[in-house]
Design a protein around this nucleic acid. Structure first.
Length: 776
DNA sequence: TGCGTGCTTCTTTTT
DNA sequence: GAAGCACGCA
């Protein structure tokens, strides 16, 4: 174990052995940051520091888990287990549970995710009768979140002249009221949202110096990873915690700060020297990941940013190939080109699928590549997107668990009071909620205290509500006597969820049933991992954990040999042999709104830098000349970032377009059956994800029908009038309205579809675009 | 009470 | 291209 220091370069070694006092480690991309962090912890332990005296904060659960595993291999699993290691959110939610009562929250407070938060805000906007054109849930949420991350509580916001002025200016003067009501509602529900976990920690430390002192004393050594992505709230927590011992080591790279939209302040890392006098700074500048060409090219990009800590990242790896810039006519062609390259690489150079990663700016871009990869039978995996925990059936079941643990949780109660259907209608729930609001009670307390005369509900409805409440009570009674998995299973079946899903024999129903089983398996796994002789694992312990998990944490450790698709943001910290950076166009990357602001543009450029530095060996940068957005074709121009790269590292592969190279059709020839299947599959997929099938878009009797024939049909909102599957039709450029496919003939792409349209404006459009021939 | 339809809106990025 | 919402029809 002594030898580990020899594995490090001088800068890394300094960063590991200087354990006392404030330390700033600037870790360039691919410079062995994780290695330094793990070895530093190992070194601390070797120097006699107790594991439970070390607090290590990371940005993602996954990073924490990985680091823990790596440390375990060095120092042993037992010691590693008593380290405090996790994301800010998970570590401080643990602390908040311990200290909850001094803040007036229950220990078993619920954690609201973004969806919960948005739904509450939406309701408040509605209740206040505010103009929903001005007050958009997303926007309001962003304001509130921003306020919280800057430690501005609801009362402080109300009194904050600047904030109020800004709101007045932007025509949303009532935000402070929404914020106030939202906060009250969370408090009443015994719930915290993501931002609260940090805000309340700050409040705790501010109002309860003894508590702060306790944790200051507890942690002799604090390490923070990805420091450039901390927000003000996190920054202050760290500052306070480290105030006494001052043994704080922050690691980060200002050039990779890409989360300002979430409140991250690059200033935190830039100003470290101001906050911590006598700090030591170590720069890890040797890149072990990428070829010289890629490192040099990346340097030439980031050089364009003013706001940064100077550093000289270099590589001693082979020189490598130049960056390939390729141009395509359309987004579809781009997909085709990338898929072809991957295909060739795998079959001629014998690379593996998993060596290839396609990175894009927005999730929506994944679709084209999915299609083109599928057509070539290339296996792929998309990361991000809809999380397992966002699925309807999972959220439903978790809502039961949350309610059983915390009855004040109105959001969960509303979600499940009539699921599975037990005859408690919307009107009933609304009246209940209104009554609760009037009496300033949670809905649950309102149910318990209903004086029947005071509420406009008939006895039938009331009985159903009581039945529901009784069921929940019975579950709660078992909370600490029954082991988590058993109780979870019991709730799933007694509530009727399992049965409700089981009786659904359609493929999507089966999948949902399987998902529920998977969740239960997860609970079982959690139980076995956490049980010991003294305590059985109870359901609330599981809930603590699950609320902060994300899609990435649920990934199975299968040895996947698949092409990887993800956003640049989620690629941070990862590396791939071959990277395809796609959609590098103005208005997309950098995005439209970044163009006017220097700081936003710099952040986009850092994002570009992050993408480039993911590549170990080969990098392809790709853009299209035309791209569909919201069903319409737009002209695109190459991103300014491409010009930012020093041309000596780039191979511009933008040759005269050879139209014969790329087939003009959007699909490979398919049989009619394939065509129908594809739509059916899409529909199934949507249904799996959302729990409900997409709305069918189909004409009905009573309106004028037009029959038309087209040779290119794609659909909106899925499928064809094949048995029970109905469809909306979209034709070539733009949306013509919805119709019903009466008949499909021929092979793709020369499919002839006879469609009934019912949209009155359609006929003109049909005539205008000669592609369609009006039959009647 | 549920479902189909027409219209509107949405796109950054995620703990 | 996809999804949410309100309205209107059974």
């Amino acid at each position: 174990m002594q030898d580990y220091l020899n594995e490090l370069n001088p800068a890394q070694r300094e960063a590991v052995v200087n354990i006392n006092g404030p330390v700033l480690v600037i870790a360039g991309a691919g410079s062995g940051k994780t290695r330094v962090l793990t070895y530093r912890i190992a070194h601390l332990l070797e120097k006699g520091v107790k594991a439970y005296k070390i607090l290590s904060l990371t940005f993602t659960n996954k990073a924490a888990k990985e680091m823990k595993e790596r440390i375990a291999t060095i120092i042993g699993a037992e010691k590693a287990a008593s380290l405090w290691m996790g994301t800010f959110h998970s570590v401080f939610s643990k602390i908040l549970r311990i200290e909850a009562e001094s803040l007036g929250y229950p220990k078993n407070f619920t954690i609201y995710d973004a969806a919960d938060t948005k739904s509450i805000i939406k309701n408040i906007i509605k209740e206040l009768n505010l103009d929903d054109q001005k007050y958009k849930p997303n926007g309001v949420y962003a304001r509130i979140s921003n306020a919280k991350n800057n430690l501005i509580t609801a009362p402080a916001y109300e009194a904050n002249k600047q904030a109020r002025f800004n709101d007045d200016q932007s025509g949303t003067p009532e935000i402070y009221r929404i914020y106030k009501i939202y906060s009250q509602r969370c408090k009443k529900s015994g719930a915290m949202d993501f931002d609260d976990l940090l805000l309340q920690t700050n409040i705790l430390f501010k109002n309860h110096p003894k508590v702060l002192a306790k944790y200051q004393a507890k942690f002799d050594y604090i390490l923070v990873d990805e420091y450039q992505d901390t927000n003000f709230s996190q920054y202050l927590i760290v500052k306070k915690m480290a105030e006494v011992h001052k043994n704080l080591c922050v690691v980060g790279d200002d050039a990779q700060s890409i989360y300002s939209f979430r409140g991250a302040k690059i200033e935190n890392i830039l100003n470290f020297k101001k906050d911590y006098k006598n700090f030591k700074m170590f720069k890890l500048e040797q890149n072990y990941r990428s070829t010289q060409n890629i490192v040099d090219a990346a340097n030439s990009i980031i050089k364009k940013n003013k706001n940064q800590i100077p550093k000289a990242v270099f590589s001693k790896n082979e020189e490598g190939n130049k960056i390939n810039v390729i141009e395509s006519l359309t987004d579809n062609e781009e997909g085709f080109a990338i898929a072809t390259r991957i295909f060739d690489s795998v079959y001629t150079d014998h690379t593996e699928y998993k060596d290839h990663a396609i990175l894009y700016r927005t999730n929506a871009q994944s679709r084209v590549f999915e299609e083109s990869l599928r057509k070539r039978n290339i296996p792929y995996k998309i990361y991000g997107g809809l999380s397992f925990y966002q699925r309807k059936e999972i959220k439903d079941l978790l809502a039961y668990y949350k309610l059983v643990v915390n009855k004040q949780d109105d959001e969960s109660l509303k979600r499940i009071i009539n699921y599975p259907k037990r005859g408690i209608g919307q009107t009933t729930v609304d009246r209940l909620a209104e009554y609760a609001r009037e009496k300033d009670l949670s809905i649950w307390d309102a149910i318990i205290n209903i004086p029947t005369s005071n509420i406009n509900l008939n006895s039938g409805a009331l009985n159903k509500i009581y039945g529901f409440a009784e069921m929940i009570n019975e579950f709660t009674a078992k909370l600490y006597t029954t082991e988590a998995y058993n109780l979870a299973k019991e709730i799933a079946s007694t509530s009727g969820i399992t049965h409700d899903l089981f009786k659904d024999k359609a493929p999507e129903g089966v999948v949902r049933h399987e998902n529920v089983q998977e969740l239960l398996n997860g609970i079982m796994e959690f139980s076995t991992n956490n049980e010991n002789e003294e305590t059985t694992v109870s359901l609330d312990m599981y809930l603590e954990d699950v609320s902060l998990l994300t899609n990435q944490d649920n990934e199975k450790e299968e040895d996947l040999n698949k092409v990887i698709l993800m956003t640049i943001h989620s690629s941070k910290g990862l590396e791939f042999k071959n990277v395809y950076l796609v959609g590098v166009e103005e208005k997309l990357f950098p995005g439209e709104r970044s163009a006017n602001s220097t700081s936003e543009l710099e952040e986009e450029r850092r994002l570009f830098y992050v993408a480039v530095t993911r590549a170990e060996k080969d990098l392809v940068v790709s853009y299209a000349r035309q791209r569909y957005k919201w069903g319409q074709l737009h002209d695109c121009i190459p991103s300014r970032f491409i010009k930012d790269i020093d041309p000596s590292y780039v191979d511009f592969n933008v040759k005269e377009q050879d139209d014969t190279l790329f087939p003009t059709e959007r699909e490979k020839p398919q049989t009619k059956k394939d065509y129908i299947n594809k739509f059916a599959q899409n529909r199934t997929k949507k249904k799996e994800q959302k729990g409900t099938a997409p709305q069918a878009r189909i004409g009905s009797a009573g309106k004028k029908l037009i029959k038309a024939t087209t040779n290119t049909t794609t659909s909106q909102n899925t499928a064809i009038d094949n048995k029970d599957v109905k469809v909306g039709i979209r034709v070539e450029h733009g949306r013509f309205g919805y119709g019903k496919v009466l008949q499909i003939d021929g092979e793709f792409p020369n499919v002839k579809a006879t469609i009934e349209f019912r949209n009155h404006g359609v006929k003109q459009l049909l005539l205008k675009f000669a592609k369609l021939k009006v039959v009647e």
